[in-house]
Structure formats: C-alpha cells, structure tokens
C-alpha cells in the first residue's frame, strides 16, 4: 500500500530530518511510528500524503510514485488518505458539521448524504451534540476528535494520524484507539505517529521507531527475524 525507498529529507544543511528510510506498510496494516520529539515522525507522515517532498528517494502509495505526481493531480492522492493533523487544521469559520460536510462535498457527495455521513462520524467520536459549534468553541481534545471524524468521513483506504491522542485524557485516548482499530478491521491501513508508549504497549501492533531521522527499530522485522 505504502512503500518508501531510500527516502531522505533535509530541511537545512546541518540536520537531516529523515535518513535512508526503507519501509513498507501493507494494505490493512496497523502501524505505530514512534520515537522522541524531533525523531522525524511527523515528517514521515507528511511525506506519505505529500505535504513534504523527499530530498532523495521514492515513495509509492497504491503503486503510484507520489513524488512525480503533478500538483493538479494531488487531490487524487489526498482523497484516498484521511489525515488527523497534530494541529487539527479545522476551518475556523465553519461549524464542525460543516467542516466534515466540506470534506465530503469536495469529493462530490450529495448534500443530504453529506449531513447523514457527517452526523454518523461525529456520533462515532461522541461529538454529535456539538455539531453546530465552531472549532474555537471546543477544547483541544474535542477539536482533535473533530479532526478524526473528518479524516474518517470519506472512508479512505489509508488513515494517517499525527499524535491523535496528544490532547486527550487516557480514557478518551483508549476510545479513539479502539475506533482506529475498528476502522483497521474493515481493511483501512492505519499509521499512527505517537510517543505514547502506554498505548503502543496495550495495542500490540507493529511499531516503527525513529531516532534522529533513522529507523532504529521495526517490530515487524524483529518478528520476521525470529
């Protein structure tokens, strides 16, 4: 589903954000990407939906080399990847219902179906009662859940989440992870960047550990080696 071949990312001369990354995430896999702050977790995720372009190397998503994708065709990639951003990236002048409807509108979903689907995903994240609120009227945790609901609205084959539980209390964090697990059970590839060791341990999924831009551990390889 997602393959990275010798991927490097350099923002400035001194530091390498990612260095020689070779990874493969199969269809229906659930993978945690972990590591200390500044390890390159967010950069790795940004590469997969081409918010960043690799300085070197190739990235294939669904068999397509996304580094070569023209700007005018980028929407084709992004409609197939749901992203939960660390800073939520919600449209501030729209209600949370509209934020989700908008993501559905751009893929050509009819107005009535938009509202039904938006309500359903808001219910999944437990925010259906706040659908008429604006993002800035919500707490950080609530905004995080709206971002998750929006990422799920289109039922994308790949879901990326950057620190999705960073603003949530442990109980809600577990609920969100359960939600990701349910989505994953339906065949969606899920990649979660987190430094929450507790969640990683509890979930028992494949974990890729980064440090200073390099893969220092991949539990899949460790399992294969056994």
């Amino acid at each position: 589903m997602v393959q990275l071949f010798h991927v490097y990312k350099q923002y400035d001369r001194e530091s390498m954000a990612l260095s020689d990354i070779n990874l493969r995430f199969d269809k229906g896999e659930f993978v945690f990407v972990t590591g200390p702050s500044g390890a390159g977790k967010t950069t790795l995720l940004k590469m997969v939906f081409r918010e960043e372009i690799p300085s070197r190397g190739q990235i294939l998503v669904g068999g397509r080399n996304i580094a070569l994708m023209p700007l005018s065709k980028l929407y084709l990639l992004r409609r197939n990847i749901g992203v939960v951003f660390q800073d939520f990236k919600l449209l501030k002048r729209r209600t949370i219902l509209d934020n989700i409807c908008f993501a559905l509108q751009i893929v050509g979903c009819p107005a009535r179906a938009q509202k039904q689907r938006a309500f359903a995903v808001l219910k999944m994240v437990g925010l259906q009662h706040k659908m008429q609120s604006y993002p800035l009227q919500l707490s950080g945790g609530e905004q995080q859940r709206v971002a998750i609901a929006r990422a799920l609205a289109n039922e994308p084959p790949v879901l990326l989440a950057d620190e999705p539980t960073g603003n949530l209390d442990p109980e809600l964090a577990r609920e969100i992870m359960k939600l990701f697990e349910d989505i994953n059970a339906h065949g969606t590839t899920v990649l979660v960047a987190t430094h929450n060791r507790e969640i990683i341990r509890t979930m028992g999924k494949r974990t890729v550990t980064l440090d200073r831009g390099r893969v220092v551990d991949d539990t899949l390889k460790a399992t294969e080696a056994l």
């Binding site: 005018s72 992004r78 990236k89 449209l91 993501a103 751009i106 893929v107 289109n154």
Partner: peptide, 16 residues
C-alpha cells in the same frame, strides 16, 4: 491562505 491549505490537504481540486 490557511483555508486554502486545509482545502488542498483534504483533497480539493485546484479548480474547486
């Protein structure tokens, strides 16, 4: 600008 960036990230066509 911020809205345009979000629209692009969620998969809006340039024409849209």
């Amino acid at each position: 600008q911020e809205e345009i960036e979000i629209m692009m990230l969620v998969g809006a066509k340039l024409g849209f």
